[in-house]
Computed example of a mutant assay.
Amino acid sequence: MSDSWLGRVLELEVGPVAHGGHCVSRVDGRVLFVRHALPGERVRAEVTEDKGGSFCRADAIEVLSGSEHRVTPPCPLAAPGGCGGCDWQHAEPAYQRALKAAVVAEQLQRLAGITREVVVEPLEGGPLGWRSRVRLVAGRDGQAGLRAHHSHRVIPIDDCPIAVPGSLDAALSKRWRPGVELETTCDGENHLHLRELATVRGRTQGKQLSGGMAVQHAAGRDWRLDAHGFWQVHPQAADTLAQLVREWADAPLGGVAWDLYAGVGLFASVLAEQVGPDGQVLAIESGRRAVSDGERNLADLPQVSWRSGRVEHLIEDAPTPVDVVVLDPPRKGAGRAVVNAIAAGEPDRIVYVACDPAALARDVQFFAEHGYSLTDLRAFDAFPMTHHVECVALLQ
């Protein structure tokens, strides 16, 4: 298409929700992904991105006929041209969960051929004040802020309503060198940790400004780990997921289990309790600091052995046969090679923790090719106000 629609304002009938925090509309044979709208609404939307293909992106700048589920966003920056962090502040919390459930169900049906009713469950604490880790960037004036959606533009902020109250005070109370990135973490003891990030030769390096060693609580244990390493962002998520893994993994006493993409060993600790001192738990994790933290935190569980490296490189040599596999891959999912290697171990049960429903659905289909069926699924609203959702799938 030769004529760009960028900047064009269109009157649209808003269609169903789509993966990514927007809804779908269609105009003149093209698909528009519309943010700040809800299904069934009629809006005026401005096209914000048009790369000339079959689709473009737009922001709803005026609501002509609103949904009954529309509310006033608690943050004025959750609006067209504002911060890109939140997708659904303009929807009732219960309706946000319904939208996420629809996305998970659609991805399972489209990518895995599975028709299943999905319910997204809330976590304790409500939709605000939950985010324990936030990355900020300093604008041209040195004031820390958040980036606009799909942009490097910095939106200055005074606070963030989804962040743990007070957790951004140290970063927002001073001026920084323009372009500096900052990461704040509030741990399970409500201690605050702040570091400055820099990219050197393509690698991100951090300069600790305060704190550094976090204390978290989950799975009946106290964890001491790098404050900026991997840990669930929602304060209730880690323990909720560990409890479900304990229920679904059901590893046999004396058995063999794998914990893939293990982080600091949250799920490995659960598996170790189940297999007992005569069993084996292999934890594979690519982050060396996470492995070091995991080894220290699980030093009382000698049945857990650690391997540092990429799962796809190490899984071929994992001990077999294996009874249970738990995996919590990054957003891109595990992929066919890892799925094939897991299936080759012939586990009775696979517990798959996923932060991206599309990647989960694709990998479920890969597992189906090896005879594994999705026998249970739960989804949690571990990221309220955003489009993200945490799912746990049981495959047998």
Rank of each mutant, 00 (worst) to 15 (best):
E46F: 09
E46V: 15
V47I: 14
E49D: 15
E49A: 13
D50V: 02
K51G: 15
G52V: 12
G52I: 10
G53M: 09
G53E: 06
S54F: 11
C56Q: 01
R57N: 13
R57C: 12
R57Q: 12
A58F: 03
D59K: 06
A60Q: 06
E62M: 06
V63D: 02
V63E: 00
L64M: 14
S67T: 07
E68I: 12
E68D: 15
E68A: 14
H69S: 14
H69T: 06
V71H: 07
V71R: 13
V71G: 02
T72E: 14
C75P: 10
C75T: 08
P76G: 04
L77Q: 09
L77R: 09
L77E: 10
L77D: 03
A79P: 03
A79W: 05
A79F: 03
G82Y: 06
G82D: 04
C83Y: 00
G84C: 08
G85D: 12
C86A: 11
C86S: 07
D87Y: 07
D87L: 10
W88K: 00
W88F: 15
Q89A: 11
Q89I: 10
H90Y: 10
A91D: 02
A91C: 02
P93V: 03
P93F: 02
A94T: 13
A94V: 14
A94W: 14
Y95V: 01
Y95Q: 04
R97G: 00
R97I: 00
R97H: 12
R97E: 04
L99H: 04
L99W: 07
K100S: 03
A102H: 02
V103E: 02
V103I: 13
V104G: 01
E106I: 01
Q107D: 09
Q109N: 11
Q109C: 08
Q109W: 08
R110K: 13
L111N: 04
L111Q: 11
G113S: 05
I114A: 07
R116K: 10
E117V: 06
V118K: 04
V118G: 06
V118M: 07
V118D: 04
